[in-house]
Nucleic acid binder design. Structure first.
Length: 407
DNA sequence: AAATCGGGGCC
DNA sequence: GGCCCAGATTT
């Protein structure tokens, strides 16, 4: 036995005659946070500082910083008169120090251009360093109770879902739609609480992943929810089709003209194959000899650099910059039939072994000098084979790479 | 390892 | 005005 529930009896969240802001504010009345330090005595100055701090840090982290900052700099004038260094010392630990610097700069600007009064026109607020459209909207609405929209990351997510707006929010057209919607939904009444509420909703229930739609006051009006697409919206940033990774690829030649090969870790790129030593490109070329010494235990001398070549993987492009090094023969000694852990051993003329005092890099499973005849027999990745095997590689500086004959 | 974020800066 | 970055956290 069911009976029709009248609109009058329905919760605002389910009642289609309630607007977006009414539903949101009703939720905020029950669940919103109203006792954070910057929610008392809401002046433009206090809200401004809190908004800048909150741009980069979570509420719980911000609170103690905010309180210390406010004790030392209770108003714009004290902030403007302090040195940048002192302001930064109160910012230390929050990160993004450019924003701390902007804070000070803006305070000075307010003293000079606005007679020490924080501006109350949206465009003036937005003209201050470190304050863009969204932060200006937050200050104007929360502190000055002016009807002004905001569009921070949380609000973008709420609105993209609510209206099922397609496309990455970083695209201008999408951002324009969101700003327009943000503006349309912003109420004339209780705009301060509304701004707080929509940010809170995005920060809590309407989270990036697995939003808690069951508790959400907008559920009945949310387009993404109706379509079951709350996990797909907002559309993620299109991942750059071909991330490029660059690395040095080292041809380390010993006195016999052999090259150093390493057996790569079993997983990952070229898993388990022999290849030339590869070094991340964030080391500069001058650091390579030290790197070779510490990682491989070899004294290498730079000889030449070859033209970089590319290899396309399914998910990224690898650009390898070949460098030719020459090294002394590693110190060798006869050790009978035993080898020691971490030290490469290999047979020489069948009867005894020598240790070569070069090391195996972390993660790699073996490391050997091979002559051309030898490396032709082992499993090399095709691009490496191509690099070594043909004389066709365009070589800078006139020195051929690893194209020495057997020795 | 990659996505994210709001504003700045550069052309 | 459009594009990309700096600088840090989150996932």
């Amino acid at each position: 036995m069911t009976r029709q529930i009248s609109l009058f009896e329905m919760m605002p969240s389910d009642n289609p005659s309630f607007s977006f802001s009414e539903k949101l504010l009703h939720w905020f009345d029950q669940f919103g946070r109203k006792n954070l330090p910057w929610q008392h005595n809401k002046t433009a100055y206090r809200v401004w500082i809190s908004e800048i701090m909150l741009q980069q840090t979570q509420v719980t982290t911000v609170i103690p910083y905010y309180e210390r900052f406010m004790q030392r700099f209770p108003d714009i004038e004290s902030l403007a008169q302090a040195s940048v260094d002192e302001v930064l010392s109160y910012w230390a630990g929050l990160g993004y120090y450019a924003r701390g610097r902007n804070l000070h700069k803006a305070a000075v600007t307010v003293m000079e251009n606005f007679a020490g009064e924080f501006p109350d026109k949206l465009e003036d607020i937005q003209s201050l360093p470190g304050i863009g459209q969204s932060t200006a909207g937050a200050i104007a609405s929360i502190a000055l109770k002016q009807r002004a929209p905001i569009l921070d990351g949380n609000v973008k997510r709420v609105l993209a879902r609510f209206a099922a707006i397609e496309g990455w929010t970083g695209e201008k057209s999408v951002s324009n739609q969101l700003w327009k919607l943000a503006d349309e939904l912003t109420p004339h009444q209780r705009v301060d609480e509304y701004t707080q509420a929509i940010m809170d909703l995005g920060a809590s229930l309407c989270s990036r992943r697995n939003p808690d739609c069951g508790q959400c006051p907008m559920q009945s009006a949310c387009k993404a929810f109706a379509q079951g697409r709350q996990n797909e919206l907002p559309t993620p940033k299109p991942k750059s089709k071909n991330p490029v990774k660059e690395a040095w690829i080292l041809a380390i030649r010993d006195a016999h003209g052999r090259l150093l090969f390493q057996k790569r870790p079993p997983t990952g790129i070229w898993g388990g194959l022999w290849s030339l030593p590869q070094v991340e490109r964030d080391l500069n070329i001058a650091q390579l000899p030290d790197y070779i010494a510490s990682q491989l235990g070899l004294q290498g001398q730079y000889k030449a650099e070859a033209t970089p070549f590319e290899h396309q993987f399914s998910h990224f492009k690898l650009v390898l910059h070949p460098i030719l090094f020459e090294c002394e023969n590693p110190v060798s000694e006869a050790v009978g039939e035993y080898s020691l852990e971490g030290i490469v051993s290999h047979e020489v003329q069948g009867s005894y072994k020598i240790q070569e005092a070069h090391k195996i890099q972390e993660g790699f499973t073996d490391s050997q000098f091979y002559s051309r005849a030898q490396w032709r027999e082992i499993g090399l990745p095709a691009p490496i084979k191509k690099l070594l095997g043909s004389g066709s590689l365009p070589i800078k500086e006139q020195i051929e790479l690893g194209i020495t004959e057997d020795s």
